[in-house]
Design a protein around this nucleic acid. Structure first.
Lengths: 191, 191
DNA sequence: CGGTCAGCTTTACACTGTCAAGCTGCAACT
DNA sequence: AGTTGCAGCTTGACAGTGTAAAGCTGACCG
């Protein structure tokens, strides 16, 4: 494997992350990332496959941060299955709101390279946190429960924040009340 | 009210729609839409507030097509509450898959003008179809049921198609099985 | 008739992603 | 030791983007 000089490649990714955090979805630009990393505007081409390649690398890092956020929320929650799963979802929604630029690149960017192994690995880890949080409710892997929670929280994030609830006539109910209809909120803590 | 000459304004919107349908999310460009409408590249500025304004107008039309699709599916379904709601959701998912470019502008475009009255009206109509489909299950308006179905189908659309199921280890379950856990599939047809 | 102005064009500018050419310094090989 | 190869990077150029400014034109109105 041909290992890149870590500094420049990582500097570009870090620059892109900060641009997205500061400037939202539109903040990221190849040339801006290059400038912020202190290299010429054509340097990124030697580390990534154009802008889509840089976006893919940034999304990969962003998924890792995303996973961290969900885990941090989960581990701060009370040790009941419902509280833990709700905390994971709250982390999900928090990230979507606080890191809208990253969230956009991760999920709404039209030309990510979804065949990228690192991206697949990091996004699978993120999904794994949610999947694990669902386990107690089905007594084992259950694609319907997982898919339902995953879809719901993702859809809720998009509809809630990006359009601040205007689709629904009134303010949307808290996600807690949605989740309480998906899984048993009174499940005991002994797994 | 100052009514624009219908032809040019509508031609620009129609051109934008076709560009999005043919070229996906990236297909739309102010200059391309202008060229396809047979006007100069600066003409759109006299009808819309820049590119965001054109995108907003296009999204408004797209929401109308979206509503039509859901209604068409619903009206072709058997007259049970579950079959009708499932058909609405299938229309939703169909549109997301077949009209990915439009769907992207409607939901993932970072700079739509969400204060636009026409856009709000059309998107509210679309939501109304789903909301109405939910009514039989709660015996009246219920934000939790609506929010759950809306979030689920929207999240399912994003996760299913744009990333063709790679987040979930295996192929995702059909939406029907998800919906069957949200509402009562055996509800009788007499409202 | 004269003026106003919406609709449109032309021109220009800053910015984008990408490509081609060239430089440079390090590593490997003979 | 000398040469080659090449990864990393720069410079320069190009087509394409959104947008702003200036000017044209023809219809409407007082």
């Amino acid at each position: 494997m041909t290992r890149d000089t870590p500094s420049t490649r990582d500097a570009l990714i870090e620059a892109g992350l900060s641009l997205l955090i500061e400037g939202g979805p539109e903040g990221l630009t190849l040339r801006r990332a290059a400038a912020r990393a202190g290299v010429s505007h054509a340097a990124p081409a030697h580390h990534f496959n154009g802008l889509p390649g840089l976006q893919t690398a940034i999304a990969t890092r962003a998924f890792a941060l995303f996973t961290e956020t969900m885990i941090r929320h989960r581990d701060a929650a009370e040790p009941t299955p419902f509280a833990r799963l709700l905390a994971i979802c709250d982390g999900y929604l928090d990230f979507a709101a606080q890191r809208a630029g990253l969230f956009h690149v991760m999920f709404n960017c039209p030309d990510l390279d979804h065949t990228d192994a690192a991206l697949q690995s990091e996004s699978a880890k993120a999904y794994g946190v949610l999947r694990e949080g669902c386990l107690p409710f089905s007594g084992g892997p259950d694609l319907v429960t997982e898919g339902l929670v995953w879809s719901s929280v993702h859809g809720y994030a998009m509809l809630d924040f990006k359009q601040d609830g205007r689709q629904m006539g009134e303010v949307p109910p808290p996600f807690r009340s949605l989740l309480a209809r998906l899984v048993d909120p009174t499940l005991s803590a002994d797994r």
